[in-house]
Design a binder for these strands. Structure first.
Lengths: 336, 336
DNA sequence: CTGTTAGCGCCTTCAC
DNA sequence: GTGAAGGCGCTAACAG
C-alpha cells in the first residue's frame, strides 16, 4: 500500500527476516516448498510493502517471459477483434498478451516476430490468412522455426504453412457448401467479389465456390474491406454484362459494402440479386436484409489457438485442427 | 527442450573485437558516440550473428521497458477495437502494445494496472467509461498515481477522473445535440435504452438527452451490448404504454439490437418508430435503414491518447482534451 | 526446509 | 573515443 520507492524482493526478505531465496520461493510458485511460518511472514511482508515482482527481472533470470504475442492484420476488423477476444480470455491468467497490428503488411509480420523474440516471448499467435507469396511464406516459416528453436511456441490461425500448430478454417469446403446451398435455393448465375489476390483465404474461398457451381462465374477482386466490397460491386454493376442472380462476397465486411453499392443503385437483395458473405461476424448478424453467410466460430478459434500455444506438453509434430464452416441461409438470398 | 545458442551482446562484441560497452553504444542509441571504424565492425558482427537485443535485459538495466499497456472493456466490441487500432498505429514504432481485456470488470482493470507496473511499463492507456462506483474510481486513481509516481505515464479515454491526461468524448453535450436534432425532425415522445447504470458514459448520454427534450422520457436499462439493446427494446414494447415515436439507444450496438427486436415484432424504423444510436461504429454505417447517430472519431481518439502518453515532455497538469460528437441524421429517424 | 552464491544480458558511471 | 567494472531484481543450482 506504499509503492513509493519501488520495493524489491530483497526488501520483502529483509522485512520478513528470511533469505532472498525463501522469499522468492513463496512469492512465485517454485517447486520447492516453504514452511508455513516463514511463508506467512513473507506473504505479510509482501502485502505490507505492496510488493510487485519485476517481470523483466523474472524473465531475465528464468530465461523466458510470460508474454504471448498476438499478430493480426487489423484489429479494427471484426474478424480479428473477435478472434483476439477469444485469445485474450484464454491467455489472461497465464500471461500477458501483446498485440501486433500488421495492417496486412507481410514485412511487419516478420518484424513483429523478431520483436517477440527480443522479448523472449513465451509464445506467438499468428492470426490471419497467409499470403500467396511463397518467398515471404518461406521467410516467415524460417522465423517461426527460429523462434521455436529458441524455446518459444507458435500457433497460427489460417493455413497450415508455417510448421506450427494451426487452427485451419475450412474455407474451400465451406465455400463449396455455400455454393451448393445457393444453387439449391435456385440461384444459377454467380459473381464473386474475391478479395485481394494475395491472400490464400480469399483464393480458397473463391476456388471452393467456383468449383462447386456449374457454369461461368464472374470474378471481381478488391481489398478485404467494406470499401473494397463496395468498389467491386460497382465494377460488377458497371460491367455492362447482364446481372448474375447471386453475388458472393468472400467475407461479410465486403458483402456489407456490396449491399450498400446495390442500394445506391436502387437494387435490393434478394429481390434483384442475392448476396452472400462469409464469416458470420456477430455484429453484422442483425443487418437487414439479414445476410446469408458461412459461420466460423471466431472466438472459439482464437481460444483454441491460445490453448494450443499455452499447452506445455511435448509434441512430436505440429497439431493441425480443421474448423468447419456452417452455411447459414438468411434473407439476403431467399428466393421466392 | 534445448535452447538454441542465443547470441548476446557479448558475442557481438567479441566477434567485432571491441568491448561490451562499445558494442552496447552502437547497437542502441547512446549519447556517447563511437568511431566509424569500430561502429562498422560492430554492426557487421551483429548482422552476421543475427543479434537481437534482449528486451528484458534492456528494461532491467535501464529501469523501464518500452511496453505500453492498453486497457479496454472488450476488444470484440467495435468501439474498443477501433480505438485500439488508432492506438496501435501510434505506439507501433515506439514500443510494444500489451492488451488488457477487462470484460467490463473494474477489479480486472485494477489488476491489469498492477501487471503493467510489474512490467515496468512505460505507459498505460485506460480506455472506456469510468464507473459510477466512487470507491472503485478512488482505488483506480490511487493505482494510477502510484504508477505515475514510479515513472510511468497514464492517459485515459473517457471521463477525467483519474488525474491523468484524458481524451474526453463530450457524451452529454452530443446527446443533447442529438435530442435537439430529433426534436427538429418532428419527434416528440422518446424512450431511451440507457445501458448499464454503472457506467458514466451511459449515464451522461442519458442525462444529456433527457435534459434536452421537453416532457417525459421512458428509460430502459440494460447491458451495453446487442443483446442488451434487444432485451431493453422488448421491455419497452411489452410495457403496455403507448409507443414513443422515437427511441434512443445510448450506443450503436444496442441500437442494432433494438432494431432487430422491432423487426421481430413487425415494426420498422422509421415508419413505426424512429431509432437513434451513438458512436457511429464504422462497420455499422451500412445497415439498412441507416442509423441516425452521433459520430465519435474513435480511431483518432485512440491515436491521440497514445500520443499524449508517448510524449515525454514535462507537463505541469494533466491535459484534458474534449472531443465533440457530431450528430449524423440518417434514415432511421427520417420522418416524412 | 532454508540460506549462499552465482549469474541472466545489458547499461552506465567511471577511468584511461 | 574506448574499455573495465558494478549493478538492475530475480531465479536456480548448490550446500547446510
Amino acid at each position: 500500500v506504499n509503492p513509493q520507492p519501488t520495493v524489491t524482493l530483497a526488501d520483502v526478505a529483509a522485512a520478513a527476516g528470511v533469505s532472498l531465496a525463501t522469499a522468492s520461493r513463496v512469492v512465485n510458485g517454485s517447486t520447492r516448498t516453504v514452511g508455513a511460518a516463514l511463508r506467512g511472514k513473507v506473504l505479510a511482508a509482501a502485502a505490507e510493502l505492496g510488493y510487485t515482482a519485476n517481470a523483466n527481472a523474472q524473465a531475465m533470470a528464468s530465461g523466458r517471459s510470460k508474454t504471448v504475442g498476438l499478430i493480426v492484420h487489423d484489429i479494427a476488423d471484426p474478424y480479428f477483434s473477435t478472434i483476439a477476444a477469444g485469445a485474450a480470455g484464454t491467455v489472461d491468467p497465464h500471461g500477458i498478451l501483446v498485440l501486433g497490428n500488421t495492417w496486412g503488411r507481410p514485412d511487419y509480420e516478420l518484424e513483429f516476430l523478431t520483436t517477440m523474440r527480443a522479448q523472449r516471448a513465451r509464445a506467438v499467435l499468428l492470426v490471419g490468412s497467409r499470403s500467396t507469396d511463397l518467398v515471404h511464406t518461406r521467410l516467415l516459416a524460417a522465423e517461426v522455426a527460429g523462434f521455436t528453436a529458441s524455446g518459444g511456441r507458435v500457433a497460427a490461425v489460417g493455413q497450415d504453412l508455417l510448421g506450427a500448430d494451426t487452427v485451419v478454417p475450412e474455407n474451400r469446403a465451406a465455400a463449396a457448401g455455400l455454393a451448393r446451398a445457393l444453387t439449391g435455393q435456385g440461384h444459377r448465375s454467380f459473381a464473386v467479389l474475391a478479395g485481394p489476390p494475395g491472400l490464400l483465404a480469399a483464393r480458397d474461398r473463391l476456388e471452393g465456390f467456383r468449383d462447386a457451381v456449374s457454369g461461368e462465374v464472374e470474378v471481381f477482386e478488391g481489398p478485404f474491406t467494406r470499401d473494397g466490397g463496395y468498389a467491386a460491386a460497382v465494377r460488377l454493376l458497371d460491367s455492362g454484362e447482364p446481372l448474375p442472380d447471386c453475388l458472393f462476397a468472400v467475407n461479410d465486411v465486403m458483402a456489407i459494402g456490396a449491399m450498400a453499392a446495390l442500394r445506391d443503385r436502387g437494387l435490393e437483395a434478394p429481390r434483384d440479386i442475392g448476396v452472400a458473405g462469409f464469416d458470420d461476424i456477430p455484429t453484422l448478424r442483425d443487418v437487414a436484409p439479414s445476410l446469408t453467410t458461412v459461420r466460423l466460430p471466431l472466438e472459439a478459434m482464437g481460444r483454441r489457438a491460445a490453448e494450443l500455444v499455452l499447452d506445455d506438453g511435448v509434441r512430436d509434430a505440429p497439431r493441425v485442427e480443421r474448423v468447419p464452416g456452417e452455411v447459414v441461409l438468411r434473407e439476403s438470398t431467399a428466393r421466392s
